[in-house]
């Protein structure tokens, strides 16, 4: 079916972005708490977004 691809892809993209941000943002937050710094959270979030968009490109963008 035609709709199946789009629906599946949209929910997966959302899931990837969310989990990328949660995981690497969580790592950054943990480093912040551990080392008493303030910038690891931002680095982690940006890294998570970047990795998640790369993953989306790998899965849905290259044809």
């Amino acid at each position: 079916m035609a709709m199946k691809d789009e629906g599946n892809a949209l929910w997966s993209i959302f899931g990837y972005l969310l989990s990328g941000m949660l995981f690497w943002g969580g790592v950054g937050y943990g480093l912040d708490q551990w080392l008493n710094q303030g910038y690891f959270l931002l680095i982690g979030l940006l890294l998570g977004i970047g990795a998640a968009i790369y993953l989306v490109w790998l899965r849905f963008g290259r044809e």
Binding site: L10, I13, L17, A52, V56, W57, F60, G61, E63
Partner: peptide, 12 residues
């Protein structure tokens, strides 16, 4: 399709 999905990913 890939273009739309990548644009969606960036906006989202």
């Amino acid at each position: 399709q890939p273009i739309a999905f990548l644009g969606f990913a960036l906006a989202e």
